[in-house]
Simulated assay, not measured.
Amino acid sequence: MSTIKIRSVAPEDNKALAQVIRDVLIEMGVPKVGTAYEDEALDIMYETYDVPRKRYFVVEEDGKIIGGAGIAQLEKEDSEICELQKMYFLPEARGKGLGSQMMSTCLNFAKEQGFTKCYLETMPYMKEARKLYGRVGFKALDKPMGDTGHYSCQAWMIKDL
């Protein structure tokens, strides 16, 4: 029987985590420009999230990283608004309820940090992800917020915490 746990990212996770995220982005057909694919942070996730009010969580199965998601203040936006960032899961992590568990972990952390709203960006064709976001209370927006640099992401959502 496998052991699955959600925990904070550690320095030794950087390389494997970057590979997981890039593999999922490629699988999903996400453009490599104007999306998380080209973020410098992908290769230094521990360092990127090792600051106040930011946290990245990984899903680990039997010692292998199979997904993750993070919370950080939304760039160039009100300090009460955070962003759900880089939530990606390998195929073997899907359909096990891990997305819901990860959302709960991230949103609880956001509330603890004093955020009152959570924003996210995704791709319109990522229907399963958008269904999950809708189930936990995210509502569609007509235009993006903040300054994420992800101009290729064309679906925006927000949720009151």
Rank of each mutant, 00 (worst) to 15 (best):
S2F: 11
K5S: 10
I6H: 09
I6N: 05
R7M: 06
V9R: 00
P11S: 10
P11H: 06
D13A: 08
N14Y: 06
A16K: 11
L17M: 09
L17V: 02
Q19K: 12
I21S: 03
R22Q: 12
V24P: 05
L25T: 01
E27L: 08
E27N: 11
M28A: 13
M28C: 13
M28W: 15
V33F: 13
G34A: 04
D39M: 08
L42E: 02
I44L: 12
M45L: 15
T48P: 04
Y49G: 00
P52V: 06
K54L: 06
Y56I: 00
V59A: 10
K64W: 05
K64Y: 06
I66D: 03
G67T: 02
G68C: 14
A69W: 09
A72V: 01
E77Y: 07
E77W: 09
D78P: 07
I81T: 15
C82H: 09
E83H: 05
E83V: 06
L84V: 11
L84P: 00
Q85I: 10
M87Q: 08
M87L: 10
L90I: 10
E92Q: 14
A93D: 02
G95D: 03
G97Q: 02
G99V: 08
M102L: 13
T105D: 09
T105K: 14
F109T: 05
G114V: 01
G114P: 08
F115A: 10
Y119M: 02
L120A: 05
M123G: 03
M123W: 00
P124E: 11
M126T: 03
M126Y: 01
E128Q: 14
K131L: 12
Y133K: 01
R135K: 13
V136H: 01
G137N: 02
P144K: 04
M145S: 03
D147V: 04
G149Q: 07
G149N: 09
H150W: 15
H150F: 15
C153Q: 07
W156H: 14
K159N: 14
